[in-house]
Nucleic acid binder design. Structure first.
Length: 291
DNA sequence: ACCGCACCCTGAGCGC
DNA sequence: TGCGCTCAGGGTGCGG
């Protein structure tokens, strides 16, 4: 599932194949609720435009075009944004891909889940957006327009400070895990990194946010920075559907301390990692190392 | 203002 | 082999 690190890795690897290239043609699948801007509008508005900047806020990717309009993507649970220079997501296993030299990897062929394709006036590669479960979002924001989804995002998790979020913790009685997942408090944290950061900070996920001390809050934010940065460095987590734009797997899943390790030994104390449900989502923690 | 829950979707994994 | 069930969860929107 793409969280901040996976979106950031996507941003970094996509920038060279997107920026400064004039869009020549746009292909889409049919109208669907995840197209917050109708696909026919995208097909009408995008050709002729040149992407000038690719920014990330939380889990959103924002493409600023030469007319200052913005094309925005959210990857949801299974969204993939990639170029088709090489073979890509799901069409070959990771092992099968690894055994092929890059020049032998066939070009990606858009399938029924490939909802958007941008062709550029200078030729290949194209930019493709694929999303099996359609929890992603694609929309266009006109010049000078405010988008409510972007407007209500809190500070990007990498820029958050303990001092900044502590007051927000104080007034929330729900589990601290739920507050970490609240994108209006901090943007970019998802289930994996929330669990990992709470483990590193030694705080149990069910603790009411209002009872987290200032020192603990600072430890949690510090831990978040650490796990998010480390994950970006290793190319993100490839736990379920995420693959980088070039089809490669990330490496962070090998460094997980608790996420999806129920029953396995805690790497610090050997006690079994526990799994509970908080806010209808699984939470993983070590009862011995976290208090 | 805050909180918990139903819902959108599809594929994987499981038991029978 | 195949069917039907459950689970995964980011984000929105609703009712309490």
């Amino acid at each position: 599932m793409p969280e901040l690190p996976e979106v950031e890795v996507t941003r970094q690897r996509l920038a060279p194949v997107l920026l400064g290239r004039r869009i020549a043609a746009v292909e889409t699948t049919g109208d669907s609720y995840f197209f917050l801007t109708k696909p026919r509008t995208l097909r009408r508005e995008l050709p002729g435009r040149t992407p000038l900047a690719l920014d990330r806020h939380g889990k959103y990717l924002v493409v600023t075009l030469d007319n200052q309009a913005r094309l925005v993507f959210h990857l949801g649970m299974t969204g993939q944004l990639f170029s088709n220079g090489v073979m890509s997501p799901r069409l070959l296993s990771a092992a099968a891909r690894a055994s092929l030299a890059p020049e032998d990897q066939p070009a990606f062929r858009p399938d029924a889940h490939t909802h958007l394709r941008l062709r550029f006036s200078d030729g290949v590669p194209d930019l493709l957006f694929r999303d099996v479960r359609k929890f992603g979002k694609v929309f266009l924001v006109a010049v000078g327009e405010e988008n409510p989804r972007l407007a209500k995002l809190g500070v990007d998790a990498l820029r958050a400070t303990g001092e900044g979020v502590f007051p927000l913790f104080r007034r929330r009685r729900t589990a601290v895990k739920n507050v970490l997942l609240d994108q209006s408090v901090m943007a970019g944290v998802g289930n994996i990194y929330a669990d990992e950061a709470l483990f590193l900070a030694g705080v149990r996920p069910r603790r009411p946010a209002s009872r987290i001390t200032r020192v603990e809050c600072e430890r949690i934010v510090e831990a978040l920075h650490q796990v998010l940065q480390r994950s970006i460095e290793t190319g993100g987590s490839s736990i379920s559907d995420y693959l980088a734009p070039d089809g490669s797997d990330g490496g962070y899943q090998d460094e997980r301390q608790v996420y999806a390790r129920e029953g396995e030994a805690c790497r610090h104390c050997k006690a079994p990692v526990r799994r509970v449900v908080i806010g209808q989502r699984s939470a993983h923690f070590c009862a011995h190392c976290q208090h």
